[in-house]
Simulated scan of single mutants.
Amino acid sequence: MLFNQSKLLLTIGCFGLLSMQPVLAQEQMLKTITVTGEGIERIPTTIANVQLGVEIQGENASQVQEEVAQKSNSLVNLLKSRSVQRLQTSGIQLSPNYSYNDNQRKLIGYVATNLVSFELPIDKVGAVLDESVKVGATRIDNVTLSAEEDAIASAQEKALVKATASAQKQANVILQTLNLTAQEIVTINVNGANSPNPVMMPKMRSAMDASVANTPVVGGEQTVSASVTLQIRY
């Protein structure tokens, strides 16, 4: 009987120790501080991505399409001679053109469009826009400015370094103020070091706006940001 009681007490004692282990582990995990650091890098834009093309209106569909094709060929030949990068057709369209009067729709002709997109250095884009108008371009739909891919990748790394250092510094300041000592980093979360959005230039209503004088295109900056969260045990 005494043996059984001793065995029972031993079992209860072991169970008590086991039940305390999760509590102790939880208390240990609760002694953490979580901080988030931000890192920002600004880099100059050097590349322009342009979309422009030819749009012609006329009464006869085949004539309109032929005129667009001729001017588009001249435009593409010019762009190739200027060694633009990533030149490609971005849109071809032929659609009827209607007039509306007293709720009546009347076919008055056709509209043909041929658009191309390309990239080139910002310091060359103004002159190419002007030359494109001279050979037949009638639309400048979009111009966006961005940094080169290598520059963006380098900026992302620097932003991550800054974000990590910022998080570490915040943790050190808080723990030192409370007379606590950091033990180890429990978790590291990289919340983002995404590529920046291209800088959009104001949209031109037509290529005629670029034919009045030399078109200035001035590069700006892109902002690359990163965020890092550290959980530190103390």
Rank of each mutant, 00 (worst) to 15 (best):
I92P: 07
S62A: 09
N103V: 08
T46N: 08
V111S: 12
I56P: 00
L75T: 05
I122M: 02
S90N: 05
D123I: 02
N49K: 14
D123H: 06
F118C: 01
R86N: 13
S74G: 10
I43T: 02
N77L: 10
L78V: 02
N97R: 14
R42C: 09
S62N: 08
V50F: 04
K80W: 12
L79I: 06
N77M: 08
V116W: 11
P96E: 14
L94D: 08
L107M: 07
G53K: 01
S90G: 06
Q63S: 08
V125D: 01
A61V: 09
G58F: 11
Q51S: 08
I122K: 01
T46Y: 12
E67T: 08
Q85I: 07
A61C: 02
T89M: 10
Q104P: 10
Y110G: 04
T113I: 09
N77D: 13
E41K: 11
T46R: 13
R105V: 09
Q88C: 05
T113V: 08
P96T: 07
V128P: 03
I47G: 06
T113A: 02
A61K: 12
Q88E: 12
G91D: 05
V68I: 04
K80R: 14
V111K: 15
S95K: 15
E41S: 11
G91N: 09
L94P: 08
G91P: 07
P44V: 02
L75H: 06
A127H: 10
A48H: 05
T89G: 09
L107G: 05
G126A: 03
Q70L: 10
N103E: 12
A48T: 02
L52V: 03
Y110P: 15
S95R: 15
A48S: 01
S99D: 15
